[in-house]
Design a protein around this nucleic acid. Sequence first.
DNA 1: TAGTGGTCTAGACCACATT
DNA 2: ATGTGGTCTAGACCACTAT
Lengths: 246, 246
Amino acid sequence: MARQAARRSRSPRDVPLYEMVDSIVRKRLVENVYPPGAMLPSEMQLAKELGVSQGTVRRALDGLVAEGLVVRRQGLGTFVSEMEDRRSLFLFFNMVAHDGRQEMPAARLIEAVDGQATDIEARKLAITVGSPVRRLTRLRLFRERPTIVERLVVSEAVLPGLARHAPPPDHLFRYYETEYRVTVVEADESLRAASVTEEEADLLDMPVGAPLLEIDRVAYAMNRRPVEWRVSLCDTSGHDYRIDRG
Amino acid sequence: MARQAARRSRSPRDVPLYEMVDSIVRKRLVENVYPPGAMLPSEMQLAKELGVSQGTVRRALDGLVAEGLVVRRQGLGTFVSEMEDRRSLFLFFNMVAHDGRQEMPAARLIEAVDGQATDIEARKLAITVGSPVRRLTRLRLFRERPTIVERLVVSEAVLPGLARHAPPPDHLFRYYETEYRVTVVEADESLRAASVTEEEADLLDMPVGAPLLEIDRVAYAMNRRPVEWRVSLCDTSGHDYRIDRG
DNA sequence: TAGTGGTCTAGACCACATT
DNA sequence: ATGTGGTCTAGACCACTAT
């Protein structure tokens, strides 16, 4: 019966049912029909509503779980991920001390100014040149020791008035989610080597010319729209950038 | 029936059937019962042999597919991955030109010598201090331009006589697989910033003190044994190290 | 006890590739 | 025509969490 319904509603393209379920649920996540922290309908309820079997709903949810968009709690239900659920504090932060300790650095706001998107900012944020943006500079410290200079740019349209009246908290992604209902789910990073310039020398307490790790990162929301562009200049004399592949 | 058999053979630990299937197949992959390129028994055959349903075999294989250990080809069967299948040429190589092109660099062997494992080498390769090792130095070039100095250490016990009689091919992981039946499936990387020393200055045609990206990587075989320790010093003036997260 | 997710089965039909 | 993986169903039972 469900099979018949599915067949009737299928386009010649013939996309699997579980993908249809995936995109329906995904859409509701993006549109906050299911807001962060909320419980989704149970697998049986969703199956009934969408006219498919529980197994098919389950398969669709498996994908969303793998992406970290939702989490299952046995005996309780399936819930929309909040930032904490996604080990996201560390998902996007990979500096590990040489002794193996992984700790979150504090953030000190150095500067926050308005501006108009330059060519490269516009390209990174997928907005038009000249659009209003905000530019923040922050210094990050591990155990009081300045280690990273962080320059970030966001579009006023997406995150209006960011840090205009008060310094934002250390964990910006969580702040975006609770304050702006913008959930970062993905990021592309480019790493290069750079050298300390006069600008950063006193902030980081390093000599001009010393080597730095430069991390250029664009973060994306669930709908694949860019949320922020961030360039981090890291002193790696005490910390590594760690990646586990495979 | 299968259910009963499974129950009987279950320890109090009560591990799911699909995990048992996973480890059985994984074991056969490690032991080359199913060698690279070979076709696995069909899902139905495996199900019958192991006394579970096709769906359970399928679920186990899903995991191995996700890890890239095997690949499915519809209408043909399930096959043990060969290096090429795992997009592995790029899986472990992430230098992307600033214009976006991703190309494999050539490798030129500079030096290959015998030695005895130092403290740190022993720790990285999980062998005892003083064990015989081989140390290779290679220069990697993008379009004839020297870009990376690569120093790598392998245990003689794992990869005997590597590069003793002839320079190995550019893609070492593939070579390990075909020549030594050692398949690299995982790697841990640590990235830092460094500066060009006199040793690398002429190899890379860069001034002493210029910034370099240093990639410290241990590669592991299917059985989680370390295969090689490699430190790459990269000139990032023309290429970035790219990561896509999320 | 009731409701949730977690596992597993048996069987159906489809899409695909080879013979 | 045959055999493979790919999708989907319906229903069973288990483990967990709450009340």
